[in-house]
Design a protein around this nucleic acid. Sequence first.
DNA 1: TTAAAATTTAGAATTTTATTCGATATGAAT
DNA 2: ATTCATATCGAATAAAATTCTAAATTTTAA
Lengths: 159, 159
Amino acid sequence: MGKMEYNLDQIDYQILRIMQDNARTNNADIARELGMAPSAILERVKKLEQKEVILQYNAKINPNALDQKMLSFIFIKAQDIIGVQKVGFLLAEIPEVQEVHDIAGDDGYLVKVRTNDAAGLVDLMRNTLGKIEGIISTRTTIVLETVKEEQKLVIPAKK
Amino acid sequence: MGKMEYNLDQIDYQILRIMQDNARTNNADIARELGMAPSAILERVKKLEQKEVILQYNAKINPNALDQKMLSFIFIKAQDIIGVQKVGFLLAEIPEVQEVHDIAGDDGYLVKVRTNDAAGLVDLMRNTLGKIEGIISTRTTIVLETVKEEQKLVIPAKK
DNA sequence: TTAAAATTTAGAATTTTATTCGATATGAAT
DNA sequence: ATTCATATCGAATAAAATTCTAAATTTTAA
């Protein structure tokens, strides 16, 4: 698994470029833009899904609309065996935790967390992180303002 | 701006919950699940878009499929005037930069960057970051492995 | 509490899009 | 050249989105 040829061509890239910007673009529009038939686009998209090039479609929701105004990054030092992310998996189970990265250096994790407010963060750290075995220490960085937050990848241009 | 009442009810939350998981779920399916008419769902979704509760729909693309195997976080100390993120905006313009956060503490930014490999990172730092005026210093954290990476928000449950 | 106004919903009609499928083309391997 | 696999097109069909109006519900104000 993971060992696979994706073999994407320029048409795939163009489709990905469009879908990355608006996942609800319909086949007819994509077809028009690429000068192809809608059915051909459909085939391509299905194949991209099947090959797990497109992993999922999601709606980006405004955190403010759900009153989630606080964003933090927490460095977590753990006593995990290298390569076995026991603590990592436990962290990943927490709904407020959006990202968990195993990072080089201080043998630990970098975790991205979204909460309503500072109280929510404190609560999470005390009641949820606090109960995870194997956490040695944490260091929290608070986000004052987010300038950019996207997950768009740079898609190779025509050669 | 930003001062607005979202006034979301349980039905909206349910719709958001569904759309957050799969932005291509059709109205008929949502309607069935919520016991409503498709046209009512359509109205709701349109309103959610209009109120900017739903910000956009995007396809999550597998970074490996585009050979982007390297993920890094860079702390950037800048000489920006507080509240005026000149450097922040310049960083946000870089395609490989997915996130730019103004963080508390060392008056700087936390930046999330995706490149093909280590060489790509070095190249970016030298040729792109290196040309931005006002950057005092950088500290880079390299991600060895990502355990979780989502942007899903915790949606309030029924009261 | 009641009445008017505004909003939301259902359901049918219509338009648009997705999907299927056979025919044709393209390309690589034999 | 022949076979096999893959892609595309284009028409036909199925499904979904969208529009619209009347009825129902909720909100507001009297």
